[in-house]
Design a binder for these strands. Structure first.
Lengths: 148, 148
DNA sequence: TAAGATTGAGTCCTCAATCTTC
DNA sequence: GAAGATTGAGGACTCAATCTTA
């Protein structure tokens, strides 16, 4: 029970982090009518390029059904367009429209501004270390999911 | 756009962290019939002692309506008991039962074991630094919420 | 009037079932 | 049969409305 001292704080802070993050960033749809999940999916498509839905689901680490509904919403809003893959008629390839790219860039600025405010008194080394440890944690969880 | 290099990875890793964490730990109810949220609320009551619902909601950083439903579920399962506050007839005070304490201790062991596996190749210094930075991030988000 | 608590409506996610195409 | 994708059911959370008591 000795290393409870080591893992206890991690468990507690992570739990709080999840709930606080969702409360801070997961605000209801803005005037544009789109929410956090739509923004994040649009970001994936904008930065990493077009992809089919199953690929997006894997990259975003969510269920395919979620991506299916999100893409339908983004498509209805005119932010992405869907093109049928001529080589595989089961699949669709999703691409951002110009409107979608503009929308994402505006949203990203608001997001980054909030992040800069929150981490204003951190040193660059701390910010880099936070991203690095977070990345290692993600890698460990991914490996655990594979190995299961 | 220069510090996109600094905040971009943070945004990306945190987004992935949230989704992966939920997939890894937010499994559907086990044989006991209770899920992650019930476990976390029970942990709060077990470790920090009895409290009324509004206090629990504040500590857990979720809406009061969520805690209200969670407490009702835990009470139905016999893991917590509710006592009316004699000094304030609006409020109830929630306490864990012996059954609830046992349940939480068993669950915590499973949780800690998974955490130990995931972070097995981290140094103690890295684990401590991760918890510390996470705590600072939480503090920054809490301050931002207050100041709004 | 404000605080403690409950309930109903709407949204996002997971899981399971289904359909189409490889 | 397996992979890409869609749809329906159920759970958890947010928000708003409501009720009771301080």
């Amino acid at each position: 029970v000795e290393d409870d001292d080591e893992y206890g704080p991690i468990a507690r802070e992570v739990g709080l982090f999840l709930r606080r993050w969702l409360r801070t960033f997961d605000k209801r749809a803005d005037s544009s009518g789109l929410d956090r999940t739509a923004y994040m999916l649009l970001g994936r498509i904008s930065t990493d390029g077009p992809a089919r839905l199953s690929r997006l689901a894997g990259d975003m680490c969510v269920d395919l059904s979620v991506v299916s509904r999100q893409v339908a919403a983004l498509e209805a809003a005119g932010l992405v367009k869907r093109e049928h893959d001529p080589a595989d008629r089961r699949a669709s390839v999703i691409t951002t429209t110009d409107l979608g790219a503009d929308y994402f860039n505006r949203k990203r600025e608001h997001f980054r501004a909030l992040l800069r405010t929150l981490l204003a008194d951190w040193t660059p080394a701390e910010r880099a270390e936070f991203a690095r440890l977070m990345g290692r944690f993600n890698g460990a969880m991914a490996a655990h999911e594979e190995g299961k």
